[in-house]
Design a binder for these strands. Structure first.
Lengths: 220, 220, 220, 220
DNA sequence: AATGAATGAGTTTTCATTCAT
DNA sequence: TATGAATGAAAACTCATTCAT
């Protein structure tokens, strides 16, 4: 990604094993996401990341400097991905209630499809956001969701279907909490409730409840 | 809790129970809670646990068998503690709305005072509840909250202040999600929002919002 | 199991756990034979010996002083047993050839029934007979076999069926070698020859060969 | 054996094969032979092996994977060595009796010069050939001695000096037993007989006896 | 005599990282 | 750029032995 320009210079001849630097970086990054998701930061192994990326271990240090730096890059990558998807929501075309339902549904579905986001954030929180604080990039990646929520709320209030009780940031956190918690805690909950909460059926039920629950709260 | 002095052997007073086995066990358990909370399962160090418990490292193996078994005992301990506290709630004496507010408040406050519960559960979920599944004890520790929620809901519906839209288990998960998420993700959220969410002031605000948000949803 | 008699002695009151010291010693000794045979001296575990003897680990130290001393006692025990059996041979009643066959057969059969003797001796030899040298007892346990061999040889020479070529000690070593080697090396030989040499059938065949082989050599 | 200098890369002379991997491996292997011979498998210490090989301890794991794998490699090495020597016997040029004497003498002398072979095999047999069974290599290393014995026997029978009583495999085992036992049990026998059996003088006497003993048995 | 807790000194193994080519 | 060998520091776990009761 950074080294991109190297690849784009077909005019030079020398270049012994110029085997796509950017591709190597990406392979490492994806392997790192998988590894840290499965094993956590401390449990993640540089060897396995390199092996699963199909490259030499030393390249990790070449490209990222250290395990910690690779982890930071991993976090940046998952944030980048979710922000990219969030940008693509165009809820202003929908009626307020539909927009709100779509937004909650998106929050739920994204986590469902990206369990790595859930797991990596939990681990990073255990470390009190140590790596996140080191990242300049992440600070620049603001979520558009708060803004979207605010606009949607306002539109709903304007047409009289929503109450005006809740701050957009609070609402954002509540929606995130309702969706995130389910994916974060499915496994222990399944044991505690002695009932598999990871099935598609249960997931759909949970998704519906959350949407209803939030809408019920927002309704005038 | 400290297993007190030599469980009721009436003739002698001294002799703190065979070199104080129970105290050693408890010291290890508490040190383990702290260590695994701070560093996670993989990052947790048996050496540090023993050192912080003030006992010899090998006693971990003597009393618990292995790091994994100690971790399981740690989970059992934190579940035991929260269940114990949940049992002590007596919300049937309160009016339905007050009871619901108290229950949500308790959920919030307990996690606030017990960050180890949040962190340990997150790590255990990353491991897909591996250790929890090994525990016979935990299966027997049912949370009374679902039952309390059900009764409170019913009472509220009976007097006409609550709607009848939500299943008690769903509601339990929603309350848990709203409270848990905040404590689980405070650190990354603080970075993302560039605003310290761990302050007492912010916590109070969040607590109030969650109670309002749930009540707003339940209201008829 | 062992605790039985203690419980079954209602007549005495005092004598707290006077539970048959000699029996405890023997139980430990037998467990030690099994343990050191299976795992060797270094691999043998004091814990397992105590556990399999059904007594407390500390009793090992009470009765034997140390692992090394227990090992020495173990060697003394297996030597005592074989010497005891050797004393019971009464080959002077048999014709020379029959006597010699019986003696070789006994050597073979004893090792067959006492694999611990083979294994313990091998390990002790690796340690250059370190523990054996410490034992006063073993020095006093002379094998009667050399003497028996000498007498049998002489009788055979007298009646003209045996030649006079071999020294009794040499012959003793040869018989021991032929029998011992088979039991000592069965497992690796089975792998090398790709053929199970531990079967009863193979054992019988080997036994017959050894007797024939020695007799063939002794014959005039 | 030392893998010589950088296997035939003609253009450069320096560079001793990538930091001398083969030399490191060999040094470890030889140190392992010594260590396991002296202390057995369980008693053998990875630390000491590395130290005596003059390399870092972790290289054991880098090159061999584990203590058990190193042990297997050690067994493979000692088998490889004896097989190599056995291949070099050319007894078909000798008269049958001389050939048989040479073969027995070789068996005796090899063990005399290679006490590690004796000790390692004994320990491996205690473990019921556990590691040997894991080795593919060893299965392929057939001893040529059985074949040589068979041919020599046949030649001797043909010229009338040997009887036809014994199967070549039986005879192989008998010769192995007679020689192996002496080296395997010298130390305990020395104690039992109160007489040093490890002296060169005693060894020569034993060697002569074994050859005479076998020949006496084979003679027509 | 007997028990179970406690301990010091290891033991194998792991791992992030660096070196040499 | 790329590779595999090499390493220092530490990790979980073990074990013979002793202590307190």
């Amino acid at each position: 990604m950074e080294k991109a320009e190297t690849k784009a210079r077909p005019e030079t001849r020398k270049r012994p094993q110029k085997r796509d630097t950017a591709a190597t970086r990406l392979a490492l990054l994806h392997a790192a996401v998988a590894e840290f998701t499965e094993s956590g930061y401390e449990g993640g192994r540089v060897d396995r990341i390199a092996k699963n990326a199909g490259v030499n271990k030393q390249l990790v240090y070449h490209h990222f400097g250290s395990k910690a730096d690779l982890y930071r890059a991993t976090l940046e990558e998952v944030y980048r991905e979710i922000r990219e998807r969030e940008q693509q929501l165009h809820l202003d075309e929908l009626e307020p209630e539909e927009a709100m339902r779509a937004l909650i549904g998106f929050s739920f579905d994204y986590l469902s499809e990206h369990p790595e986001f859930v797991t990596l954030l939990n681990d990073e929180n255990r470390m009190e956001a140590y790596h996140l604080k080191m990242s300049d990039k992440i600070a620049d990646m603001h979520s558009p969701l708060v803004q979207i929520i605010e606009e949607t709320l306002d539109r709903g209030v304007a047409v009289g279907i929503f109450n005006n009780r809740f701050d957009p940031v609070d609402l954002y956190l509540s929606i995130a909490g309702l969706t995130f918690f389910y994916f974060a805690n499915r496994h222990t909950l399944s044991v505690i409730f002695n009932r598999d909460m990871t099935t598609a059926r249960h997931m759909q039920q949970r998704r519906a409840h959350i949407i209803d629950f939030v809408l019920s709260s927002l309704r005038n």
